[in-house]
Design a protein around this nucleic acid. Structure first.
Lengths: 107, 107
DNA sequence: GGCGTAGTACTACGTCCCGTAGAGGGAGGG
DNA sequence: CCCTCCCTCTACGGGACGTAGTACTACGCC
């Protein structure tokens, strides 16, 4: 669903339908989906003549980060979960995390 | 659902029903839920006489960490999402992460 | 030894979300 | 004036989930 969408950064309208013509969906289907995503706050829409122009409300990365935080909220012991997580990521990704944290510290 | 369950570490059977008597659910309801959680791999069950004894398949923390990794898998750019995440956690939690990563490095 | 009780498996029903789509309305162009 | 485009509203099938009932089995007591 959002997969299709969240990838392309530029804003668009029902051109989305053109972009995913391979799945040949009814035009209304695409509209319904965009509409529902908007209702859920994943997309933002702006009028453009009689059509709408949709835009992601947040970057994909921000959305993912939010999902991760949401998962984290489900536990009582956030530290334990975080530690677990740190242990679970691969070496290179641990490196990325470390770097991000370091930069954070420097600000 | 798992909320009730995943909190208590010790293993149990239909005593779960006793433990959540406040929600006064039919005994069968509790059983069905435990059964479904087992099917989905969240719980492990062992025979104990004619009854079953349920036990979490993974610790809550491990489960949360897994959820976070799952979210991370949804992006194309894992590094970007990780960086975002690192920036999003609160200061104290960033500290926890840093510590976990450092210990990881030392091993 | 039969009968109540505890525990299990199987099935069901309402609800909600999601992917898909159709039917109907307003607005611009030929 | 009609056609086309795009929008809104409503719908339907499927799957998950929370809740629960029914049917079967095995203990154990009297």
């Amino acid at each position: 669903m959002d997969v299709l969408w969240a990838e392309r950064s530029p804003l668009t309208a029902r051109e989305v339908g053109r972009l995913i013509a391979d799945r040949d969906l009814a035009p209304t289907t695409v509209m319904t989906v965009l509409d529902r995503l908007t209702r859920k706050g994943f997309l933002t829409r702006v009028r453009d003549g009689r059509a709408w122009r949709y835009e992601p409300a947040a970057s994909r990365d921000a959305y993912i980060a939010e999902l991760m935080l949401e998962a984290l909220d489900m536990t009582g012991d956030r530290s334990a979960a975080l530690t677990r997580f740190a242990q679970a990521v691969s070496g290179t990704e641990a490196e990325v995390l470390r770097k991000a944290l370091t930069e954070l510290e420097e600000e």
